[in-house]
Amino acid sequence: MSALWKANQRRIAPWLFLAPGLFMFMIYVIIPIFQSIWVSFYDWDGLGAARWIGTANYIELVDDDAFYTSLKNNVIWLVLYMLAVPAGLMIAIFLNQTISGMRLYKSLFFFPFVISQVVVGLMFSWFYAPNFGLFYNLLEWLTGKGTAVLADDRYVTYGIIAAGLWPQIAYVMILYLTGLNNVAPDQVEAARLDGAKGWRMLWYVILPQLRPATFIAVVVTVIGALRSFDLVSIMTNGGPYGSSRVLSFYMYEQALSEYGYRMGYGAAIAVVLFAIMMIFISGFIWKMWRDETER
């Protein structure tokens, strides 16, 4: 036994180290993905017996207006959320100086990211609140007429996205500040001697060196946009009239809320969201895989 262990220690050891973590991750993450796909072919209220209905849930989705509203909002989220990347870069460039107190300024700019999205949602609800909200008053002062952003189905999604951008920009900013800190000074000086400055400097000299930061910023922003649930739930609960729903929220609403426990239908929505996310995840993994195997 001991001889066998001695001879094979290095072959067995990694699996012993992996076992507890791998076990937990399998049970709570990997296997549930397949179970959800399986559940999406059933009609199930979460308690009684589940009934196999084949693709009926998906067929229902095709004709579901609420599903299209959610999908459309997800696309808007995804597109507008990407603004966090250039905005974060701009703030990082603005703050990348050494004046006294700069460290504190940088941390305070980063502040919104540390706060829970529930709290961010409440802050922006207060900000947008009709009649007394700061933003409402600002609009009234500018245009002569205030708008209750969160009660208007034309603006509600944009209002929530703005709240989401606040912490997301802070996150991207900190990524770029770290990146800028590590830009090779000799290259910048050399480019400066060649007469590069402003936009051209940024585009041709700085941005290529910031690529790792940009990659992470894009990954976290895409994932963040598609995961949006907290803000929608806190700020509007999907309203008015379901116009601010996103897929993650609509899934929850179908599977677990007062509107009933339709686990199968909810799972089908989750599978669609998962499929959309898998497109991006595969891309990220493909790039990381390439970096790993090239080394």
Binding site: P32, Q35, S36, V39, F229, G266, F274, M277, I281
Partner: peptide, 18 residues
């Protein structure tokens, strides 16, 4: 990469089974 990919999935795909 299974750990990495699992970390990115939407929570909703895990919700019912978990």
């Amino acid at each position: 990469f299974m750990f990495v990919a699992g970390n990115f999935v939407p929570f909703q795909i895990l919700m019912v089974p978990v």
